[in-house]
Computed example of a mutant assay.
Amino acid sequence: MTDKHSKETTHFGYKTVDRDDKQKLVAEVFQSVAGKYDLMNDLMSMGVHRLWKRFTIEMSAARPGQKILDIAGGTGDLTAKFAKIVGDQGQVVLADINDAMLEVGRDKLTDAGVCGNVDYVQANAEDLPFTDNTFDCITIAFGLRNVTDKDKALRSMNRVLKPGGRLLVLEFSRTDNQLLSKLYDAYSFTALPLMGKLIADDAESYRYLAESIRMHPDQDTLEQMMKSAGFVQTGYHNMTGGIVALHKGIKP
């Protein structure tokens, strides 16, 4: 039996923190890295993140006139692609819990002329501020691992999807290749913080990002979590040897 004064804890990278504090700590990370986010993505993945996102777009089966929600959409890579696909009769909502990331995304897409069918909403994935059965498709790319209560977030996504709508979760995952795993660990815990220091003047945030990947559920565990949240026809595609996986689920 827990003491009524004790607080629930969760992980922030490899650290154990009060559950109520994680959202603020994650916010501080992304406040810090927002300005260099796109540059660091290209450097960290050597540009491969663009291929992962392109596959996500293909798997979305997005069509003209649809409503799409891009959660943790950050600087808007997926939103920009979806906006072109759904056209003037469709709508894309770029949602992010972090106002600095949302501002960078808005400025970037506005400068690129992507504005007529895109809305920007500061929102927590655990409690999405949308009515039931609103969206044809939801994507969350490299954002779920930063959510405190992933099960609650997945249920929230299920609620706002239309029946037959699909959820796509693009996230770092686990590789079974031992050699690749060792190389990836060495890269993550040596090169990433160093790049963070040199490019963004912030080694600690990129150390957290590397640690958060290791604490994220593996492919089979996340698929089971999606099933528990009410999704059917679940499955995943491993990419780059399982370093990244794209999970799919349908709302019945």
Rank of each mutant, 00 (worst) to 15 (best):
L183K: 08
V48A: 06
V118W: 03
L109T: 02
R19L: 05
L180T: 01
V244F: 04
D107T: 13
R106V: 06
P129I: 07
K197I: 03
R63Q: 11
D220R: 11
R63I: 00
D88H: 06
V29E: 13
A27F: 00
D99K: 01
H49D: 01
H237F: 12
A245C: 15
L183F: 15
Y208S: 09
G87E: 07
D127F: 10
Y187S: 11
I140G: 02
M44V: 10
L78F: 03
V244T: 06
Q178D: 09
L109H: 04
A80D: 08
E8G: 14
V104G: 04
I97V: 08
T175Q: 07
S60W: 00
A153D: 05
N177S: 08
D20W: 08
F12E: 06
L209T: 02
A34E: 03
I138H: 03
G87H: 04
H11I: 12
I140P: 04
L180H: 12
L209Y: 06
E204K: 14
D38L: 11
N177A: 15
M239H: 02
G165R: 00
R159E: 08
S60C: 01
D176W: 07
D149S: 08
R214T: 07
I68Y: 02
A80R: 10
L222S: 08
G47Y: 06
G241L: 05
D220G: 10
L194M: 15
D18R: 12
H11C: 08
I250C: 10
R19P: 01
S205V: 06
M59T: 02
C137P: 07
A72Q: 02
E126F: 00
T110W: 10
I71K: 03
G196P: 01
Y236F: 12
R145H: 08
A123I: 02
D3K: 04
D202N: 13
V104R: 14
D132M: 08
C137F: 14
E103P: 07
D136H: 07
G47L: 01
Y208L: 06
D176F: 09
A72G: 03
D70K: 06
F189G: 10
I243K: 03
T221I: 13
L194Q: 13
I85W: 00
G105I: 12
T240I: 08
D201H: 03
D99R: 07
Q219W: 13
D151Q: 14
Y14V: 01
S6R: 15
A72S: 13
M1H: 13
H237N: 05
F30G: 00
K150V: 11
D201I: 00
R207N: 11
S212L: 12
R207T: 14
Q23C: 08
L144Q: 04
G242E: 00
A62E: 01
G13D: 01
I97S: 01
T134Q: 10
P193R: 08
L180A: 09
L128H: 06
G249S: 09
L194E: 10
Q122G: 09
V114N: 03
R155V: 13
F55T: 11
M225F: 07
V17Y: 01
L183D: 12
D3C: 05
M195E: 03
Q178R: 11
